[in-house]
Amino acid sequence: VPQRAWTVEQLRSEQLPKKDIIKFLQEHGSDSFLAEHKLLGNIKNVAKTANKDHLVTAYNHLFETKRFK
């Protein structure tokens, strides 16, 4: 089981690129989880459509539901 890579403050910070969060989610989330949160596909394309709040919610949801690969 992966550990949380970032704190809530870090997740919301401008310093953390959306692409980093997407990469983490794609590496650790199950396909059904990723599909549900519309996070499947090319990281660049996902970054265009997903806002930061959406990614933070998905990140927290992944750990709450433990839907890891």
Rank of each mutant, 00 (worst) to 15 (best):
V1T: 10
V1W: 14
V1K: 05
V1R: 06
P2S: 04
P2Q: 04
P2H: 07
P2A: 04
P2F: 04
Q3Y: 07
Q3D: 13
Q3A: 09
Q3W: 05
Q3T: 11
Q3C: 15
Q3R: 09
Q3N: 10
Q3L: 09
Q3V: 10
Q3K: 14
R4T: 05
A5F: 13
A5P: 15
A5N: 15
W6E: 05
W6L: 05
W6A: 05
W6Y: 06
T7G: 05
T7V: 03
T7R: 02
V8Q: 13
V8I: 11
E9S: 04
E9Y: 03
E9C: 07
E9K: 05
E9R: 02
Q10I: 04
Q10M: 11
Q10C: 08
L11G: 01
L11K: 01
R12D: 06
R12K: 13
S13G: 05
S13F: 02
S13D: 11
S13T: 03
E14M: 08
E14Q: 11
E14W: 08
Q15G: 11
Q15T: 12
Q15R: 08
Q15I: 06
Q15S: 13
L16P: 09
L16R: 04
L16D: 01
L16W: 04
P17D: 14
P17V: 10
K18I: 12
K18C: 15
K18V: 12
K19Q: 15
K19N: 13
D20G: 04
D20F: 07
I21A: 01
I21D: 00
I22M: 04
I22T: 02
I22Y: 03
I22R: 00
K23H: 08
K23D: 06
K23P: 01
K23C: 10
K23N: 08
F24G: 01
F24M: 03
L25G: 00
L25H: 00
L25Y: 00
L25I: 07
Q26Y: 05
E27G: 07
E27T: 09
E27K: 10
H28C: 08
H28D: 00
H28M: 08
H28F: 14
G29E: 00
G29T: 01
S30T: 11
S30G: 05
D31K: 12
D31F: 14
S32P: 08
S32G: 08
F33Q: 00
F33I: 02
F33W: 10
F33D: 00
F33C: 01
F33V: 01
L34R: 03
A35F: 14
A35D: 09
A35Q: 10
E36T: 07
E36D: 10
E36W: 11
H37C: 10
H37R: 10
H37N: 07
H37K: 07
K38S: 11
K38G: 13
K38D: 12
K38E: 11
L39Y: 01
L39R: 01
L39C: 02
L39I: 07
L39D: 01
L40T: 09
L40M: 12
L40H: 09
G41P: 04
G41Q: 04
I43R: 08
I43M: 10
I43F: 08
I43K: 06
I43W: 13
K44G: 14
K44F: 13
K44L: 14
K44Y: 15
K44N: 15
N45D: 15
N45G: 11
N45H: 14
N45I: 15
N45K: 14
N45P: 03
N45W: 15
N45S: 12
V46I: 11
V46W: 04
V46G: 03
V46N: 04
A47Y: 07
A47C: 13
K48M: 15
K48F: 12
T49I: 13
T49C: 14
T49S: 09
T49Y: 13
A50E: 06
A50V: 15
A50D: 03
A50N: 07
A50Q: 08
N51S: 13
K52G: 03
K52Q: 05
K52L: 07
K52Y: 11
K52C: 09
D53Y: 07
H54R: 14
H54Q: 12
L55V: 08
L55F: 06
L55Y: 02
L55W: 03
L55G: 00
V56I: 15
V56E: 06
T57F: 14
T57R: 11
A58W: 03
A58M: 06
A58N: 02
A58E: 01
Y59T: 02
Y59H: 02
N60S: 09
N60L: 15
N60A: 08
H61A: 13
H61T: 13
H61Y: 09
L62P: 00
L62M: 07
L62W: 02
F63K: 01
E64H: 07
T65E: 11
T65I: 04
T65C: 15
T65D: 08
K66S: 11
K66Y: 09
K66Q: 10
K66T: 06
R67F: 05
R67E: 07
R67Q: 11
F68I: 03
K69S: 07
K69R: 14
